[in-house]
């Protein structure tokens, strides 16, 4: 039997207590744990038609016969610019165009921790209409994590419907049409199970002499860091309870970053059973990481390829290590 998902998990709760707190001014002050939570059974009301259509695998908009605009999603059935004239339902095509380059969220709000990085953007669906609103949309790629250069203004997109739909805007998302096999491009609805998001192909990386030299430097830097971690309680705490074998392909060669027993170990070559494989054309990003740089930034900027968000979640922990070592040396 499927586990029933609740709105709030245990992690959202706090013990009922009053604690002492200090601030900028002298003295001790008190703070109490409390909450301001309201639960809803929120009606979709007039929006229900749009969400019922989504459940049926259709996209609909509301059309005004006077000004010819199409509202996507169908957010009202009375045209706000034509004295609230009655609007009619129109079926929308299963393709659209990204209206503006999409931002990629790295630091999300509390409700979306664990989902980052993710892209959200506005899709122009009713492209034949002279006036149209844009559909707020989740944007996904079959090529790994979202990164700059994929969701740019004007890119053609295909809506993908979740196999199980409940009547939510998260029942659909959009992928670049170029990532959809030709035989599926006209499919209505295209289901998520028809595409592969779980095992994106790693990009090829060409080896070079410069890359080999950069890798040599990076390996030396990382081995030095590994030695310092062995003497740093803060860094060991960062790694506590973690075991990973991360394969890394670079333009200078491949290596493995092992995390185990609150330590890291570097080994040449890829592991037989990696947790995941990262790809970096330039191995120097690992030298910069050790010098207080950021693997997270490298991934965000598209210089470090990752297959999924679970891999992305490990990067902040690795990014903390050089800082933790430095703080313990101080």
């Amino acid at each position: 039997m499927n586990e029933r998902k609740m709105i709030l998990g245990d992690v959202w709760n706090l013990p009922r207590e009053v604690s002492e707190v200090t601030g900028k001014d002298p003295g001790t002050f008190l703070q109490f744990n409390t909450h301001m939570v309201t639960f809803y059974q929120q009606t979709y009301g007039e929006l229900s038609r749009f969400f019922l259509a989504l459940r049926d695998g259709r996209l609909i908009g509301s059309h005004c016969g006077t000004c010819k605009q199409v509202m996507v999603p169908a957010a009202t059935w009375h045209c706000p610019t034509c004295d609230f004239a009655e609007m009619t339902e129109v079926d929308l095509p299963h393709r659209g165009v990204l209206a503006a380059t999409a931002p990629i969220t790295i630091f999300p709000s509390a409700s979306f921790i664990g989902d980052a990085p993710f892209a959200r953007g506005y899709v122009d669906v009713a492209t034949d209409a002279p006036i149209a609103s844009f559909l707020p949309s989740r944007l996904r790629t079959t090529t790994g994590l979202p990164r700059p250069g994929i969701f740019v203004k004007g890119v053609e997109l295909k809506p993908v419907f979740e196999d199980v739909r409940i009547g939510s805007i998260r029942d659909i998302f959009w992928v670049p049409m170029s990532e959809v096999p030709a035989k599926l491009r006209d499919k209505k609805p295209l289901l998520a199970s028809a595409l592969n998001f779980e095992t994106p192909p790693a990009p090829a990386v060409e080896r070079s002499t410069a890359g080999a030299k950069a890798l040599k430097d990076a390996l030396a830097a990382m081995k030095t860091l590994a030695g310092k971690i062995d003497k740093s309680p803060r860094a060991q705490k960062d790694l506590s309870g973690r075991t990973h074998a991360i394969g890394i392909k670079t333009g200078g060669g491949n290596f493995t970053l092992h995390v185990a027993s609150s330590a890291i170990r570097i080994e040449m070559g890829l592991p037989k059973k990696p947790d995941f494989v990262m790809v970096a054309k330039d191995p120097a990003i690992f030298t910069r990481w050790v010098a207080d740089g950021s693997l997270t930034d490298a991934a965000v900027e598209g210089n470090l390829w990752l297959p999924h968000k679970e891999a992305f979640g490990i990067l902040p922990i690795l990014d903390r290590l050089p800082r933790s070592v430095r703080r313990d040396v101080k």
Partner: peptide
């Protein structure tokens, strides 16, 4: 809104950044 935008993970900051990216386009 709780219907179309918040469920996608929208924040105030990313809405301003959407404007900035539109301007940059």
């Amino acid at each position: 809104d709780p219907f179309f935008e918040y469920p996608l993970g929208a924040t105030a900051a990313d809405s301003y950044m959407q404007m900035c990216m539109g301007y940059n386009d």
